[in-house]
Nucleic acid binder design. Structure first.
Lengths: 216, 216
DNA sequence: GTAGAATATGACCAAGAAGTCATATGACTT
DNA sequence: AAGTCATATGACTTCTTGGTCATATTCTAC
C-alpha cells in the first residue's frame, strides 16, 4: 500500500507518478521496469518515491489494483445498460466492452496483459488468491445459464468457466496485437471497423456455442 | 548460434552447460536469468561461456530450438504410432501426448511456458516468424477434417486454429500447475491417474466438439 | 515571527549484472 | 622438443539496479 504521504499529494503530482509508472510497466516487463526511469519521467526525486512506496512490488501491486478496478467498472457499466440478456447475448456484450476498453485504454490493457503473463512465482506474491481466480464471474453466469436452459447441463462448470476465461484473454490479445501490426492507419481502421469487429465476435461466439463438429 | 567451439566440446561438458542453462531458465524468467549462475552451476569459467555463446540471447535462442525440437519429435512419435484417426481422435492423442511430455520433462515444459509468455518485444527478437505462428499444424488438420466431413465447414479455419492452439496451452498450463499444487504425493497421483486425465481430455474435447449451448 | 512536523532531495551505497581480455594451459603436428 | 593453434580462465571493467539517509525545504499552527 502506498503511504499516507502519497495520498496527501496534490492530485497533479500523484497522477504524474502513476502515469509514469503505468507508462514504464507498459513498456517493460516487470523485472525490466526501472524505478530510476519512473522517477525521472515523473520528475520527482528518488527519495520521494520511497516516501510513497515501500518498494517496486508495492507500487506494482497498487497499479494492478487500479487497473483491475478501472476495467471492472468499465465493463460493468457497459453491461449494466443492457437488460434481460441471455448468456450468449451477455457474452457478446462482454466481448464488445472488452474490445472498446482495449481501444480506449491501450496502455492499461497492455499492463493487464503483462499481469496475466507474469511468472507464477511473482503472481503469487502480488495477487491474492481471489484475484488469481478470475473465473468466478463466469461460473455464476454458467450456473444461471443452465438454470435458464440456455446452456448444456452436462458441462463441468468450473472447467468451462476456466476455458472461457482463457479464450477471452486469447481473443483480446489477438485483437490487441493485430491492432499494433498495422502501421498504416487506414488498414488499421478497416480492420477495426464495427463490421469486422462484429464479425470477430460472431466467430468466437459461434465457436463457444456450437463447437466445431459437423452436425449430421 | 553457438560457436564451433561449443559443438567441439566433449559431450559431457556440453550437456553440463545446457542442463545448467535449462535449469536457470526454468527457475527464473528470462530477464532474471543470470549467466553468472549458469557458469557457476555448469562449473565453467565465465570467459568460456562467451567462447560458446555470443550472449544471453544467443544461448536462449538455442535452448528454444532444442526444446521445440524435443517436444515436436516426442509428440510426432506418439501420434505416428496411431493410424487412421479422425480429427477428434487425433486431437485426443495430441492432448495425451502433451500431458505425458509435461510429466516426463517438467523442466522443459516450464521453459516452454516461459517462451510462450515472453513479452512480445523479446518474442520478436528471439523467435522467427514461422515459430511465432504455431497454428499452422491445426490449420492443416482442420482443412482435412472439413474435407472428411468431420468438421463444420462454416468455421473460419485460421481463427479456429488459433483458438484451439490457445486452448491447448491453457489446458496444459492448468494441468501443469495443478500438478505442482499438491505437496502430498498421494493426492497428486490420484489427480494424475489415467482415469482423471482421461476425464479431463474428455471434457476439453466435448467443449471443442459441441460447444456449450443446450441443444433443443 | 518561531517551533515543529511533514515532505523533498539527490549524493551515495552495495549488489549484481553482462561482457572483456591478457594470460595460461592443453593438445596436436612436424 | 619446438611451435602452433584451440581452448580455458577469472580478475576486471562498466553499467544499472533497488534502496538509504543526512540534510534541506516547505507547511502549519500558534
Amino acid at each position: 500500500m502506498p503511504s499516507e504521504t502519497f495520498f496527501n499529494l496534490p492530485e497533479e503530482k500523484r497522477e504524474r507518478v502513476l502515469d509514469a509508472a503505468i507508462k514504464e510497466f507498459a513498456q517493460h516487463p516487470y523485472h525490466k521496469s526501472s524505478i530510476n526511469r519512473i522517477v525521472e519521467e515523473a520528475d520527482i526525486a528518488k527519495g520521494s518515491f520511497y516516501q510513497y512506496f515501500s518498494d517496486k512490488k508495492d507500487l506494482f501491486k497498487y497499479i494492478v489494483e487500479l487497473i483491475t478496478e478501472e476495467k471492472m467498472t468499465y465493463i460493468s457499466k457497459a453491461v449494466a445498460e443492457k437488460q434481460n440478456l441471455n448468456f450468449f447475448e451477455l457474452l457478446r456484450e462482454l466481448y464488445l466492452a472488452g474490445f472498446r476498453f482495449t481501444k480506449e485504454h491501450p496502455r492499461l490493457q497492455l499492463v493487464a496483459f503483462r499481469i496475466i503473463n507474469l511468472d507464477n512465482q511473482l503472481k503469487e506474491e502480488i495477487l491474492d488468491k481471489s484475484e488469481q481466480k478470475s473465473d468466478q464471474f463466469f461460473i455464476k453466469l454458467l450456473e444461471e445459464g443452465i438454470k435458464k436452459e440456455e446452456i448444456d447441463p452436462n458441462i463441468d462448470i468450473e472447467f468451462t468457466a476456466y476455458l472461457i476465461t482463457q479464450l477471452n484473454i486469447s481473443v483480446l490479445e489477438d485483437y490487441f496485437w493485430k491492432k499494433l501490426e498495422f502501421d498504416n492507419e487506414e488498414d488499421l481502421l478497416a480492420e477495426l471497423s464495427k463490421d469486422k469487429l462484429m464479425h470477430l465476435v460472431d466467430k468466437i461466439l459461434y465457436f463457444i456455442r456450437n463447437g466445431i463438429e459437423k452436425n449430421s
